[in-house]
Nucleic acid binder design. Structure first.
Lengths: 238, 238
DNA sequence: CGCAAACTTGATGTTGCTCAAGCTAGGTGG
DNA sequence: CCACCTAGCTTGAGCAACATCAAGTTTGCG
């Protein structure tokens, strides 16, 4: 079950709003935007799978995706959650290196690889722009390595909550987050199990650090403490 | 204790051999190479530290470095081992995001950031080249996330040994590796402790998968099995 | 209102960590 | 040349954090 294409008319989206065009001139931005077509993807739907021919680059326009890799026995590692403005399929290889699935309903802008690659060579500043995007992903990946390799369950959860808050913050530091993905996704992102995620959240709730009104809605009752935990500055035992 | 600069004369190094120049034309390569200066670093010496002003980009010419991030209490995650041809300090931020230290004696080529950035804009194909390099680092980082989050100790060690073998292989698949770093570095790269690394190696030795002539020299007695382990295809219990 | 999926909580198990003690190899000085 | 000494490696015993297995409980949707 793959996504349906929808014509990328100017009625459906404002080209200039595409993140891929940030920092490009008006003409360059238009050139990039016009090779894109919009797609809608429903929750749970696969955009592409690890090992598929990498025929397109995508940009998330709205909604949230998960990217993951699997081991043969089904163990899953989510390498990232992508929200509006993120690019995927950019890592240059013949095949996709991970699977991309929609968590919420997602709108994507799809760029065919061959035309995309031509623009990388021809549009001034485009390669540099993609370098900046990729560098930032790399930075995030390195932070995630520190998290996966060396943080405790509680520290992982604290880091995750703050990351989600930072991402959604319309203004800046609203002390609440909506978690659009399930506990299982969170677990597979943090290298934990669903149960451990649930317990770590319960522990933070007990300690008065967070409030769980619904499973998906979390408020920070004590952001300082959450940040100390995330940074690994706190002895575990309060 | 920081590194001494050595003039980058053509006597000391062949410009064309710099990895940073691969795929660039002769003229472009010369332009890039001429802003570089060579440095020597002794084992254990720091090239730069996390949080330092990011004033330079470096290329490893010879030897091996470790990059790592620390938590306040000293927990360390090594995010990569860099050998000849790798770039570091490329992630564009005002400050370095990790510490770089020499494992062996290392020769570096140093590029001042301001001049380097100018070349990114001016030299055709340079940004694209750096994009390819960074994409590849990102791919490696995603593999490492899967390893850190979801692989067992034995699987981590198997993956690590094969990675090291692939890197050093002068020809292709010589069934032996030299491990230039200590057990502690290996542990901090794989999200384990020294003891667990030692035990996992002992286990593989017992099972006849590898041979440990000295701690640093490992032979693969059963590469297929090692690859199955690394891929996570094997039930742990033989 | 009822059902299925997701979340939470509890009891038990296992992997890998911690603490502690030997072992080995390489470098140094007698 | 050999003995010592130290740093790094290995091995062992006990432990803790997180996983697993197994019920409950809540949530959201038809």
């Amino acid at each position: 079950m793959y996504a349906d294409a929808v014509p990328n008319t100017s009625a459906s989206i404002n080209f200039a709003s595409l993140a891929i065009c940030h920092g490009l001139g008006r003409q360059a931005a238009t050139r990039v935007a016009t090779i894109g077509t919009l797609q809608k993807v429903v929750p749970g739907q696969t955009v592409f799978s690890e090992g598929d021919q990498a025929e397109s680059v995508y940009e998330v326009v709205r909604g949230m995706l998960r990217l993951y890799k699997l081991l043969p026995d089904g163990r899953r590692q989510i390498t990232g959650f992508l929200s509006a403005g993120h690019l995927l399929g950019l890592v240059h290889d013949e095949l996709y290196l991970y699977t991309a699935e929609a968590i919420t309903e997602v709108t994507l802008c799809r760029y065919p690889r061959t035309r995309f690659d031509r623009l990388v060579d021809e549009v001034p500043g485009f390669a540099r722009r993609l370098l900046a995007v990729t560098s930032d992903e790399l930075r995030a990946a390195q932070d995630q390595m520190l998290l996966l390799g060396r943080k405790t369950a509680t520290e992982k959860i604290a880091s995750f909550l703050l990351m989600m808050a930072e991402r959604h913050s319309d203004n800046e530091s609203m002390d609440e987050v909506q978690i659009p993905m399930g506990r299982n996704d969170v677990a597979d992102y943090l290298g934990l199990t669903t149960e451990t995620v649930s317990r770590a959240l319960a522990k933070l709730k007990c300690q008065g650090v967070i409030t769980l009104s619904t499973p998906a809605h979390i408020e920070f009752s004590n952001r300082d403490r959450l940040e100390e935990l995330a940074a690994g500055e706190l002895a575990e035992d309060f």
